[in-house]
Design a protein around this nucleic acid. Structure first.
Length: 766
DNA sequence: CAGTGAGCGAGCTTCCGCTTGACTT
């Protein structure tokens, strides 16, 4: 039996440390927190100084039993991370193992090296109870916000919704960004470009720095250009440098993996976890940009040997994040000499990205030369510029950043004559602010100091599962833009088509997200304030320094907050659901409302009454209509649906309506999409035609049926094999009719598993 | 990816943060 038990948070870390500490030490892990506030009412007793009622996490019972038995007759060293949460974990472990927090040894270390561990063991302290108090204040506050605010939403908006210090602000960011985009007015400007032909036949592209406001402005310039001689006015060469970014934190890794590899934050974290467990990288949930002395030393040697002395540049970085706790190092390779490591292609790519980023952070600046050739026209004061850039010394670019995309300009001198080949003025439309991606939202939250590295990915998840936010694509609309071309002294004018407003894989707020955000901002402004977390962090720091106590800080927040919760009972459901009286039905005289319902915006005719005698009617919103603007006329039309169009040739009723997926007609149990026809105006003839076509398609759908649910079908994307769960594509060369049962099973076995994780992207209708 | 098609009038929902498996989301 070992005489000493060291308890850390992570099992992977435990394994590594055991090697350094020798046979007198056993190292075990708590696997994160072991106790918490249970997800039910009353976990924080407000009346008794906000006393938290902790409960052991049922999943941790086994871990605790192991820790208890290992702690018997051993000296326990609490070695959880050196931050607020880590200190709380140490305290909970002490409590559960019935150790005295005042005397139990508490150690911390920032890197896993012999030296750092020896040093830590030599200097044990005890649990910092002030820090533990600060953690409990944080935890209680989050619990109170979540468990008092969410029920308000259930009552006022819809059951099952949630609100929280982090998630509600994340949703707010997306809602407000979308509003900015909606109010953005596309501004038109013209950009002028030109090409000069040199004596050796090569083309020199040049641009004008000026953005022209109107087509007249550019026409005047092009007319002058048509009559002009062009001369090189000046050639300016300026040196420039580029410097590498800091080593990865959780947030920057998620961003780079998203933009360079197309991984979602969730995928990135899953892959990083594997790399960490295999010992290839340091811990992946961190907000620190620090590299250990040992790592820096290894990298210095590696860079000098592999690339040469001149490529090395020692650098340290400082964290920019508002509430960085810096309990870990930056994310870096554990062995810098390994360039490619990982179990699969995805892991290898992520590892290599980390390897390159870390290495680059200790490499020399890139030295550049920027060249600008200014060109003047004899008949116009409007000049043109040709710009080039050459990398003189690549430095860190050797491993990170774009490769050599040099634009080398021809050797020209002031006074040289140039021949204009063509010039072009193209209209461009300004774009609104960019929508967030999952990764850029994480970046924004981190900058604002909201959320922690261990929760970014799950926050992104939560706001989608709650239906506040959707990840999707926007098709955009085609716009005609003006184009003027000057060629051979002639100006021609025409238009070109441009897709405007197209977007892909971005976060969009749903109606629920908008309604909930509006409600929370209006009635719980403080919690929704972008600085709320920052302000709370300052208070928590005061608790950690024993300048304030937990109870006082919680009262300061909770007392006014709880009053708002009580006051919110007065807010009518109508207000919360943004109900608007559209008008009265001219026949029944009943009021017609537009409001936000369980499944989004909707129409309601009639009031709810206490007795059950009369229930209101409901109807869907017309496509594209909004609660604020829908007219009585439009609303009345919607109450006409479903509409009986007539009968099929064999005498069945044909009904038309608008459903979740657009307009359709229904015959018996068969639904037929009639997009883009309108159910209110579609003719019987057209409806019959679509119905017959659908019958034919249905008949052709089944190519073969082998029993056991194994079928060859004709789908939207051509023929395929299915077993009810999985689908397999049939290649174009194969005749689907020739497929046998054996062949079908073979195809199914080879088909990839259905992706079940993550959220499916959809096309957003705006 | 492989085809969908209502309901709003009824309850058991919900926080953030630490860490891994187990897993039908």
């Amino acid at each position: 039996m070992a005489k000493n038990l060291v308890i850390v948070e992570s099992p992977a870390k435990a394994k590594t440390i055991e090697k350094y500490l020798g046979k007198d030490y056993t190292v075990k892990s708590s696997i994160g927190h072991i106790r918490g506030l249970p997800s039910k009412n009353g976990s924080v007793d407000v009346a008794r100084d906000f006393a938290p009622k902790f409960e052991v996490d049922p999943e941790k019972k086994k871990v605790i039993a192991e820790l208890k038995s290992a702690a018997k007759d051993a000296t326990v060293w609490l070695a959880s991370d050196e931050d607020r949460e880590g200190e709380a974990i140490a305290w909970h472990v002490a409590e559960v193992l019935k150790l005295d927090p005042k005397t139990t040894k508490r150690i911390v270390f920032h890197e896993i090296t012999q030296g750092a561990l020896d040093e830590a063991v030599k200097n044990p302290r005890t649990i910092d109870m002030n820090l533990v108090e600060a953690q409990q204040a944080r935890q209680s506050l989050d619990y109170l916000v979540g468990f008092e605010l969410s029920p308000v939403l259930w009552r006022k908006v819809r059951a099952g919704l949630s609100a929280g210090r982090v998630q509600s602000v994340a949703v707010r960011l997306i809602v407000e960004r979308e509003a900015e985009i909606d109010t953005h007015v596309a501004e038109s400007t013209f950009k002028l470009t030109a090409e000069f032909i040199l004596n050796d036949g090569t083309l020199l592209p040049a641009i004008s720095e000026t953005k022209f406001k109107t087509v007249e402005d550019v026409r005047v310039i092009l007319e002058a250009f048509a009559k002009s001689d062009f001369t090189v006015a000046n050639v300016a060469k300026k040196p420039g440098t580029r410097s590498p970014g800091a080593p990865f934190t959780t947030s920057t890794l998620q961003q780079e993996a998203s933009s360079k590899l197309g991984y979602s934050p969730r995928t990135t974290m899953r892959l990083a976890q594997r790399l960490y467990e295999a010992g290839h990288i340091t811990y992946m949930r961190t907000d620190s940009v620090n590299l250990s002395a040992q790592a820096l030393g290894a990298m210095t040697g590696f860079i000098k040997e592999k690339y040469g002395e001149q490529y090395h540049h020692y650098r340290t970085f400082k964290s920019k994040s508002a509430n960085a706790q810096e309990a870990h190092e930056a994310i870096r390779p554990t062995n810098v000499t390994k360039e490619f490591v990982g179990d699969d292609d995805q892991q290898v790519k992520l590892y290599n990205l980390i390897w390159r980023r870390t290495l680059a952070s200790q490499m020399a600046l890139a030295q550049l030369e920027n060249t600008t050739i200014s060109i003047s026209a004899s008949q116009s004061s409007e000049g043109l510029e040709a710009k080039g850039q050459v990398v003189l010394f690549d430095g860190f670019l050797k491993v990170y950043g774009r490769g050599s995309d040099d634009t080398l300009l021809p050797e020209l001198a002031a006074g040289d004559r140039l021949n204009l080949e063509r010039a072009e003025a193209l209209e461009s439309l300004s774009r609104g602010p960019a929508r967030y991606t999952e990764a850029t939202l994480v970046k924004k939250l981190e900058e604002m100091g909201i959320g922690r590295p261990s929760t970014y990915a799950s926050t992104i998840n939560t706001i989608q599962t709650r239906g506040y936010v959707e990840r999707g694509d926007l098709e955009g609309i085609e716009k005609a833009i003006q184009k003027l071309t000057l060629e051979k002294g002639q100006i021609s004018e025409g238009t070109e088509k441009l897709m405007y407003g197209r977007d892909s894989n971005k976060l969009f707020p749903t109606d629920t997200g908008k309604v909930v955000t509006d409600f929370l901002v209006k009635h719980f402004g403080e919690v929704m304030d972008y600085d709320f977390t920052k302000d709370i962090e300052e208070e928590l720091d005061q608790v950690a320094l024993a300048k304030k106590n937990r109870v006082a800080v919680l009262h300061e927040f909770y007392d006014p907050f709880h009053k708002l919760v009580e006051k919110s009972a007065d807010v009518s459901r109508a207000e919360a659901t943004q109900t608007r009286l559209v008008g009265n039905d001219p026949e029944t005289k009943e009021p017609i409302y537009a409001r936000f319902g369980r499944f989004g915006p909707m129409l309601q005719r009639g009031d709810t009454s206490d007795d059950d005698s009369k229930k209101p009617d409901f109807a869907a919103m017309p496509t594209g209509a909004k609660i604020e603007t829908v007219t009585l006329e439009q609303a009345l039309e919607m109450f006409q649906l479903p509409r009986l169009i007539g009968k099929t040739e064999d005498g069945q009723d044909i009904k038309a309506n608008i459903g979740r997926f657009g307009p359709y007609i229904q015959v018996g149990k068969l639904f037929v999409s009639i997009k883009p026809e309108d159910p209110r105006s579609i003719t019987l003839e057209k409806a019959r035609e679509l119905y017959t076509a659908k019958l034919k398609a249905e008949a052709e759908k089944n190519i073969a049926d082998f029993g056991d649910g194994i079928k060859v079908l004709n789908g939207r994307f051509g023929p395929y094999v299915t077993d009810g769960k999985k689908n397999a594509k049939i290649s174009k060369e194969t005749d689907p009719k020739s497929i046998t049962r054996e062949k079908a099973l073979e195809l199914l076995a080879a088909a990839p598993e259905k992706s079940k994780r993550g959220f499916r992207r959809r096309t957003i209708n705006k």
